[in-house]
Design a protein around this nucleic acid. Structure first.
Lengths: 124, 124
DNA sequence: CTGCATCCAGTTCGATACTG
DNA sequence: CAGTATCGAACTGGATGCAG
């Protein structure tokens, strides 16, 4: 039995809908993939870079900064030479894990179908 | 007890991770909000436009076309004057509902916190 | 190793005008 | 009512070089 969530009293903070606010956090081009990898372990900058094929150094930096600013990830700098920086999920960031996991599951089960839909639409 | 999903044999179709594929479907600027509204009722073009504040006619059209192309929504055209077009979720589209609902719930509970984090980061 | 600064091309998007 | 067409502004993202 599902209960519809009431958002009539929701304070928008400039968003039209809570869903939009959530997407604003995880919707960056690489953010969801970054969060997925950080679910299981802390990672250094170059480790992330390897795990996220196609991302440039610049984009990885930008996306990590935004996640840090939103309180989703923690950035730990070790003062040594050469430098070492470890990224990890904050407790707050971990509250996003169920969403990421559901997206992961959906992607595993349905990516084939999406590709088919697209190819068919393309053909018409 | 959580079981980690194995994606080692996942066919990428050009995505680096299933999460990225899912985000490609719902990650458009207005898509998640559109899907949220369509969860509860079919909607005409102008009804959607009213429910999604800030969206332009052009963007709404583009986003709806992509969702249709991906098989997420159905577009029913009634041949009458003036024209009437109704948008609804397909059965496939409904498989996304749990994700949208989870995003909705997270947004309701955490938007305040996000705004705080941002203001604090801004101040430093 | 982990970034930042700069430049530049490509893409997206809003505003506006027009159509069946 | 439900779009399409066009144009320019704004933003995004890659390549490169430099730095602590």
């Amino acid at each position: 039995m599902e209960t519809r969530i009431d958002i009539s009293n929701w304070d928008s903070h400039g968003y039209s809908c809570p869903v939009e606010a959530t997407l604003d956090i995880i919707g960056g081009k690489w953010k969801s993939v970054i969060l997925y990898h950080l679910t299981y372990q802390e990672l250094r900058f170059n480790e992330l870079k390897r795990l996220v094929p196609g991302v440039t150094q610049r984009m990885l930096t930008l996306q990590l900064r935004e996640l840090e600013k939103d309180g989703i990830i923690h950035r730990e700098v070790y003062k040594q030479v050469p430098p070492k920086v470890e990224y990890s999920l904050t407790d707050f960031g971990r509250t996003l894990t169920p969403i990421i996991q559901l997206m992961l599951k959906w992607g595993v089960e349905n990516t084939d179908k999406i590709v088919q839909h697209r190819e068919q639409a393309e053909a018409e």
